[in-house]
């Protein structure tokens, strides 16, 4: 559905996106993770033809972007960096105007589609007040409605749950899952690990403009082949399992081997109380932190002055 090769964008001296090779497959809910300022939004904008790539190629729905935007974009629904609407018009009016502005939205069923999509995003009962009177969450929902208006095959959503309360986040998650079940591929850019972990089937991690990780979520968070034991008698357990213990963290032991049942019998027979026992999995957070070695890029540490014989900043070539 989305494929890029060596996609690079520099703004003057700054390399925002550095040779990334995205691969989003049909039927994915693809989580595009990265710290603020890691180049997520720039990438999303390049996919949609808003920002023009410095080099590299983009294919969306099997067609070249931005060259074939006229064919591609009518089949894509997008939410880019927050919703946008004319503040003096009502939500319905905004949707109608946007629908009339391009191809692919027929006029005859416009009202029906608008009502349906407002219902989908939970704005069915919205009145005719102008968008400037909407709350942040309502605007976000309206933006989603606009993206869904023509039943796109591919949804490209940048931080879709921004400004929503927990209840709203859950509603949107259910909506995306329902759309996915109906065959829509979703590309979701987010910095919220939990959101991605609950929703996505594949994950790509962007770190300072580089794609440092891209894989199925269930592979990334697959059991490690070890077991985890939590016990108040951690020292006795450690002594008993000596040789098999791989790590100790407070009352938590990581033990080699996957046979939790046998481990349980062993511990209980010795009178060691077990409060929790199960397979060891890496969380998405661990995976991401490991892959993205650089700290969040809105953190700017002091720079030691560079030696005069070296350029102040060097950027790696794409690869």
């Amino acid at each position: 559905m989305i494929r890029t090769s060596g996609l690079t964008k520099s703004f003057g001296q700054i390399l925002a996106v550095d040779g990334i090779d995205l691969d989003v497959r049909e039927g994915d809910i693809y989580g595009f993770l990265g710290a603020n300022g890691s180049g997520k939004t720039t990438t999303v904008r390049m996919l949609l033809g808003l920002v023009l790539a410095s080099s590299g190629e983009i294919e969306v729905l099997g067609k070249r972007m931005p060259k074939q935007a006229k064919i591609v974009l009518p089949r894509v629904g997008a939410l880019v960096e927050g919703p946008g609407a004319y503040p003096h018009l009502s939500g319905r009016r905004n949707l109608a105007l946007s629908d009339a502005a391009g191809v692919g939205g027929s006029r005859s069923d416009r009202t029906v589609r608008i009502d349906a999509v407002l219902d989908q995003v939970g704005l069915a009962g919205v009145d005719n007040r102008p968008v400037k009177a909407y709350s942040l969450g309502m605007r976000q929902r309206l933006g989603l409605a606009s993206a869904l208006l023509r039943k796109p095959e591919l949804l490209i959503l940048d931080e879709p749950t921004n400004g929503l309360d927990p209840q709203g986040i859950r509603e949107i998650r259910d909506l995306l899952l329902a759309l996915h079940a109906g065959g829509t591929t979703v590309f979701l850019s987010s910095h919220l690990l939990a959101e991605v972990e609950q929703l996505c089937t594949r994950v790509g991690v962007l770190d300072r403009g580089r794609l440092v990780l891209q894989d199925q979520l269930d592979i990334l968070t697959a059991p490690t082949g070890n077991s985890v034991v939590r016990t108040p008698d951690v020292d006795r357990a450690h002594a008993l399992l000596d040789g098999r213990v791989l790590g100790k963290d407070g009352d938590r032991l990581t033990v080699a081997g996957t046979d939790a049942a046998t481990l349980n019998v062993l511990l209980v027979r010795e009178g060691i109380r077990v409060s929790e026992l199960g397979p060891d999995r890496r969380t998405l957070e661990q995976v991401v932190l490991e892959a993205a070695t650089n700290s969040g890029s809105d953190r700017i540490p002091a720079v030691t002055p560079s030696r005069p014989d070296q350029p102040a900043a060097t950027f790696g070539v794409s690869g």
């Binding site: 904008r45 949609l48 033809g49 808003l50 935007a69 006229k70 974009l73 009518p74 894509v76 997008a78 880019v80 960096e81 927050g82 919703p83 946008g84 609407a85 004319y86 503040p87 946007s98 502005a101 391009g102 606009s146």
Partner: peptide
């Protein structure tokens, strides 16, 4: 400024 330009262009409007 109102954030609608990007949505017009991805609608798409040439």
């Amino acid at each position: 400024q109102s954030g609608t330009l990007r949505y017009l262009l991805v609608r798409p409007v040439g």
